[in-house]
Write a protein that binds this DNA or RNA. Structure first.
Lengths: 343, 343
DNA sequence: CTGAAAGCGCTTACAG
DNA sequence: CTGAAAGCGCTTACAG
């Protein structure tokens, strides 16, 4: 049935005894095609295992039916260190795209590369989804450039006033606040915060601000010495806890800015014979799949990746259709497990 | 500088005072273009922020410059349960594609869908990379169909004789054998195997066969009661250990067919007050990033995802160029950590 | 070294 | 309801 090349709409037209444009119309569900004719065409298309050539239709339509996910990371990061949270996002995004009939092109970018000019221009994608970690202050200027260029994009991050483009994010502040309140309720008075708390990492900063607010509300002083920088890796969490202990800071709870940090932190505690949660409660952020299977299971803040992906994709498609789109914050949800049980 | 639409090669030709084909040649590095002319064209292209329209060039070239990663899974799987091992593979694949100048289109497929006919036909991808888990016997017939159709594809899995298509896989047998020998050397005599051991899941089966061989070599009888089915999730590992204990089977080591299973298994042991590794040694397979941060750190078998991705992509590109390609097995590497320390 | 021409496979006004 | 025509932006023989 199939010759050397794949069947084209001309092949179908020939067999159906109609013109090629009629085939195109029938296949695209145009209401102007006679129902019998359409049925015949669909039948033949099926027999020939015909698929519309996307390159041709996209060229003609000046679009691609594809969204590009640009996952960017610091150059220092290793492939295998990708935060499982982003994997969940990736899975959810792929599904959200499929629901809308779009393909997802994925590209891992170093922050150093010029990802911000590559994609839409080459017409491979109708819009960009930006996801990842790295120094916000370094890439915010690129966001401005994207806006200037008229590139369609959405990003996952913290919604800030005056920010270029559309951002979808979880309510990091609320998550940080709720978690800290929970720790206080469990009778913990010396809560350390492990993670960066600067404008370079706005998500972590928001979590820290939520933490600070809850402390203040409870009349507990916010001690700068209880905060220690860490990137979102197990290694960083491990090292941070050791550094904290070596500084001679005493604490009875660790609020870690991510689950990976928390897992590394728990490990450091255990290695020093500190019991979790009896001696020190540990909490994370993200609710990665492994969080309920650590030992003890990890109390954390859930970011709803399914909702996030749906918002990201729908917002991007709206942008592509020149509809007005607002940044949006998704509520965070406390997941209380064993690692913060009362003493 | 830029009007309503993006710049095309005609815009550049106009400004450079040459014909459009010359622009195309200059941009593609044809040696027949005058060097001065080329420089002028490159300069103008840069000024106009020109990018070749991939839809047009792909249509003309009858190719896409894109590889599609079809990640398939059982319908029961949840987005968030994707094995971190596949994330590592994904990261490595993306990089391997980038090295070759290809984009990677990613698609999550249910085993039930007809992923095997969608991609190459619609010219969105020049070839397919198949990755995932699920019942091998269910999809092997689809592989045959792919071969029949002349679809270019490679898959990650177990290399078996007479198998359709090209397969790249890790040496699961060797990994299983080495790990079991290690456990025996640590003085463990009652090693349970947690994971499916049937032809439906060839990777697990190979690991089980390696396990069996090491036992036999050591004169230890292979007891069917010491094997218990489990999919590759923490939950399955957790449940399997409980089932094993409730069956009244005694064991002093668990060789888990994946790290996720091992993590769930360790959790189940701890919940019952069994000490790891003092009472029971636990080993996994995959060496996912978290393996070195579990408590105790997890002894496991490393699959080299960077090598795997390189083989997969290079093999696929060779297939696309109609070069002969062989299936290939990559050595597995023992990673000994705390969870299997001698008692 | 360069240009005029053809064509990749589709979609959509336009005409009937 | 359907067809003839144009054109999306490129690449590559072919001719000079």
């Amino acid at each position: 049935m199939r010759g050397k090349g794949k069947a084209t709409s001309f092949d179908i037209a020939y067999r159906a005894g109609v013109s090629q444009p009629t085939v195109s119309r029938a296949l695209r569900g145009s209401p102007t095609v006679n129902e019998q004719t359409r049925q015949r065409i669909l039948q033949i298309a099926h027999e020939l295992n015909y698929k519309v050539d996307k390159n041709a239709s996209n060229l003609r339509n000046q679009q691609s039916g594809t969204l590009a996910l640009l996952f960017f990371e610091d150059p220092t990061q290793d492939d295998s260190l990708i935060n499982p949270f982003f994997l969940s996002m990736l899975g959810s995004l792929t599904r959200a795209c499929a629901v809308q009939g779009y393909d997802l092109l994925i590209s891992f970018q170093q922050l150093s590369s010029n990802w911000h000019v590559e994609y839409e221009d080459s017409k491979k994608a109708d819009g960009l989804i930006l996801l990842g970690y790295g120094d916000y202050l370094e890439y915010v200027s690129r966001l401005e450039l994207l806006v200037e260029q008229g590139t369609h994009f959405v990003r996952w991050g913290v919604v800030l006033p005056g920010q270029p483009g559309v951002t979808i994010g979880c309510d990091n502040f609320q998550g940080g606040r709720d978690m800290t309140r929970h720790l206080l309720e469990q009778g913990r008075g010396n809560i350390a915060f492990i993670g960066h708390a600067s404008e370079h990492y706005p998500e972590f900063l928001e979590r820290y601000k939520g933490y600070s607010e809850s402390l203040r509300n409870a009349g507990v002083p916010v001690q700068p010495g209880l905060q220690i920088d860490a990137f979102t890796t197990e290694r960083a969490g491990y090292d941070a806890v050791n550094a904290l202990i070596e500084r001679g800071i005493s604490f009875d709870a660790l609020f870690c800015a991510s689950d990976l940090i928390a897992i590394g932190a728990m490990r450091a505690l255990v290695d020093r014979g500190v019991r979790v949660p009896q001696d020190v409660a540990v909490a994370g952020f993200d609710d990665i799949p492994i969080a309920s299977f650590t030992n003890p299971s990890l109390t954390t803040v859930q970011q709803d990746t399914k909702a996030a992906a749906t918002f990201l994709v729908e917002s991007l498609l709206a942008l592509i259709q020149d509809e007005p789109v607002q940044s949006h914050t998704i509520p965070a949800k406390l997941m209380i497990r064993q690692s913060t049980r009362s003493t």
